[in-house]
Design a protein around this nucleic acid. Structure first.
Length: 449
DNA sequence: TCTGGGGTCCTAGGACCC
DNA sequence: TCTGGGGTCCTAGGACCC
């Protein structure tokens, strides 16, 4: 029997998360801003209706924000990540085969019998998530992931469907594909849309009916997979999403311009420290790192400069001071004075599992050194997990951090920081010290009463 | 004044090997 | 006249996703 896929996607996820802890915002327009409060990355339906565009620069929205009394939030990824975890935990109960695809969506293989209508189960999933996490989701059902994804879009935009759409029946599917512009198909972006238009393909149905070998010359092999998926033959297989990442990035724009090498180096060291933290969290080592710096392309009258430096480590490592020293040297080689820097990023690559740590033929660090370094990093991560990020850090990452990003509208970390809990009952004081909750904490198990 | 961050996959082309 | 062929690995860049 062919599989029945469901794509469960949280509606306007970041905006819904903010609303969850602030019920006064129900029915009100909300936007969430990118890091540095740069541009809009999430909108409630009311904000969409008010005319706020996805990706719109924040400073261009001032008029609409004022006119429609739109609530503005800086992104609070700690909060969103924690709520995402709860949604995924709840979803796991409905299937043995689930792929978490992003922070707000997951593919499930639905356990239904041949001939059974999967829609009632989809409605149950939707109601359960709503009841247990407070978040609204939509469910799209299809015989392939591409069709399930499309079904989800339809569910979101068709209120009469009550949040569930099923593209398994052919009658539903043919009609829907003929009405769907090809750029709404998962995997077809703006460039590919233009290439397809040039050969007369405008709708999802056109693409489904196209000759796969012709599509291969225009869209490469990925395009032919999409054609088969639209025809109902599943051939896109997601990787094991629990698998460790192959690269890790930490990339940020600065909260204010940076001109001097010392400040730039400080920022790069701070970013590499964060990347190293992620590296240790997934039990990997990095073999090489790449540093990138650039000026502000949105100020074309300023002199423009960007540069990349790639360095290989003598042996793969996850030791922050080692990585920071290499990164510090790398940034000095590409820094040029006389420019106003706007952004830096650090990419760690050539990752391997920690247990496959290769031996160093020339033994620049002895086995004892490696053990000591590992213990030190474990202690550092544990202190920062308990008492908050940056409690202990390498000195070269700077204490003042004048370049750090703006977050002028951030909501409290309602679920991940004891001091920012939304409800404090009488006689129960919040801890005075800054303390992080263990990252496994699960809010709904805490009683509101 | 003010324009995000973090990933993946695929392909082409160069370097290098025998 | 006439200058191989086949393979791998690496990297940069393009395209997509949320």
């Amino acid at each position: 029997m062919p599989p029945v896929f469901a794509l469960v996607d949280c509606n306007n996820f970041y905006a819904s998360c903010e609303r969850l802890f602030n019920p006064r915002l129900i029915g009100q327009p909300i936007i969430v801003l990118s890091n540095n409060d740069g541009c809009v990355i999430a909108r409630s339906n009311e904000a969409k209706a008010a005319g706020i565009a996805m990706g719109q620069p924040f400073h261009e929205c001032a008029g609409l924000i004022h006119r429609h009394q739109i609530a503005v939030f800086s992104a609070n990824f700690g909060l969103y990540g924690d709520l995402s975890h709860r949604v995924m935990q709840t979803l796991e109960r409905f299937t043995s085969a689930m792929e978490v695809y992003s922070i707000d969506e997951a593919f499930l293989t639905l356990p239904v019998q041949p001939g059974e209508d999967p829609a009632p189960l989809a409605h149950r999933i939707r109601q359960t998530i709503r009841r247990e996490t407070g978040l609204p989701v939509s469910v799209g059902i299809g015989p392939t992931r591409v069709l399930a994804k499309l079904a989800n879009e339809i569910a979101k935009h068709t209120p009469a469907l009550n949040g569930v759409s099923n593209l398994i029946p052919l009658s539903n599917r043919n009609d829907c594909l003929a009405r769907t512009p090809v750029e709404e198909v998962w995997g077809i972006g703006s460039r590919l849309t233009r290439r397809l238009a040039a050969i007369g393909i405008h709708t999802a149905a056109d693409l489904r009916d196209a000759d796969p070998s012709r599509i291969q010359t225009v869209l490469t092999v990925q395009g032919t997979r999409i054609v088969h998926e639209l025809r109902g033959r599943a051939c896109i297989h997601l990787e094991d999403l629990a698998a460790p990442r192959k690269t890790l990035t930490c990339s940020r724009s600065f909260g204010r311009p940076v001109t001097g090498l010392d400040e730039l180096r400080e920022a790069v060291v701070a970013y590499v420290s964060r990347a190293a933290e992620k590296l240790r969290a997934q039990h990997s080592l990095a073999e090489a790192l790449q540093i990138y710096i650039r000026t502000n392309p949105f100020r074309p009258t300023d002199p423009q400069y960007s540069a990349t430096a790639t360095l290989r480590l003598p042996v793969p490592s996850d030791h922050t001071p080692t990585l920071a020293a290499v990164a510090g040297r790398a940034v000095a080689t590409i820094y040029r004075s006389g420019y106003v820097y706007h952004k830096a990023s650090v990419l760690l690559f050539g990752l391997c599992a920690r247990e496959h740590r290769p031996l160093d033929l020339f033994a620049s660090a002895s086995a004892t050194d490696v053990i000591r370094q590992t213990r030190l990093m474990t202690a550092l991560d544990s202190l920062n997990a308990t008492f908050g990020r940056h409690t202990v850090q390498v000195a070269s990452a700077g204490l003042e951090k004048p370049w750090k990003m703006r977050q002028n509208h951030r909501s409290p970390s309602f679920t991940t920081r004891w001091t920012e809990l939304p409800v404090v009952s009488a006689g129960c004081e919040r801890p005075k010290k800054k303390m992080e909750m263990p990252c496994t904490s699960v809010w709904p198990r805490v009683s509101h009463s």
